[in-house]
Design a protein around this nucleic acid. Structure first.
Lengths: 144, 144
DNA sequence: TTAAGGTCTATTAATTTGATAGACTAACTT
DNA sequence: AAGTTAGTCTATCAAATTAATAGACCTTAA
């Protein structure tokens, strides 16, 4: 399961995408509309800012806005930012690699092979899921 | 990431599969060979027994053995047993379903759509990964 | 210069994870 | 029947992680 932090981050980003034309948008609006504890959301948006996904303006008329294009922000990146690796085993991660102590030969480990394929397919799907495509899906789904 | 409990369970099951001809096998042997804390492993094997995946014999010459055929034990079932749902969001699980409070319409939620597809593909791959196929993969990989 | 709105630091409660200890029960062996 | 082997059950615990809250502080627009 992804953490609430990641879930909230995704919700906030989708909200910002849908209201891109009214940017910047203040934290309290996002918190209220998306049912996120405001203080918790502040920390999340700050992390997204540090990751150069969002930017902000202080003072009256300020708020948060997308720094990148919606099509350039995908769920794989967001999930990695808050929850770390997407892989289900440390030995099939890219950046957080850790060897299994009991593993005799990684290259021929059948378990690793399974989780390696799962990871690759999952990352593929999450990379495809950028903010623009998520909003687009909603339009498609509501027409069915 | 899967928990150590799940990882240990998988390792123990693969070990039992590879040494099926010598069944039953005592806990201490599995613990030692797979580098699992013995007491921890006892609880794990007990859970697998309750799930009717393993069975055991007490006393001298006793130990644990597979109750089902290796081809009938897959990683999806094992993971669900110890870590619960495989899905990354509560709203796309089968048995542990929970609605997102802020969600206006689940049927048209773009985020849900992504995670729904990820879940389905992941479960598919993990169901394919039964113990027999894992051991088979190892043989194939070592011949490359 | 004042109100709006983001930033930073600390703290905390709850939950989950990983692990350990010890008493107890069942079954095989002599 | 006694002794040994091996699984079972109950309780407990430390550490890590997650989710959330509080409050002081800094910036900027009007």
């Amino acid at each position: 399961m992804i953490s609430k932090k990641t879930k909230y981050a995704i919700n906030a980003l989708v909200y910002l995408t849908k209201h891109k034309h009214r940017a910047p948008i203040i934290i309290s609006e996002i918190a209220e509309k998306e049912h996120i504890p405001q203080k918790f959301l502040e920390a999340i948006l700050l992390d997204l800012k540090k990751a150069a996904i969002l930017s902000s303006k202080k003072g009256k008329g300020g708020g948060y806005y997308l720094l990148k294009e919606p099509s350039e922000i995908n769920l794989a990146d967001v999930m990695r930012l808050f929850d770390g690796p997407i892989a289900l085993l440390p030995c099939v991660t890219y950046k957080y690699y850790e060897r299994c102590e009991e593993c005799k030969d990684e290259a021929t480990c059948g378990i690793r092979d399974v989780f390696y394929n799962v990871r690759n397919r999952t990352v593929e799907m999450l990379k495809d899921a950028d903010l623009a495509s998520i909003v687009k899906r909603e339009h498609l789904l509501s027409k069915e």
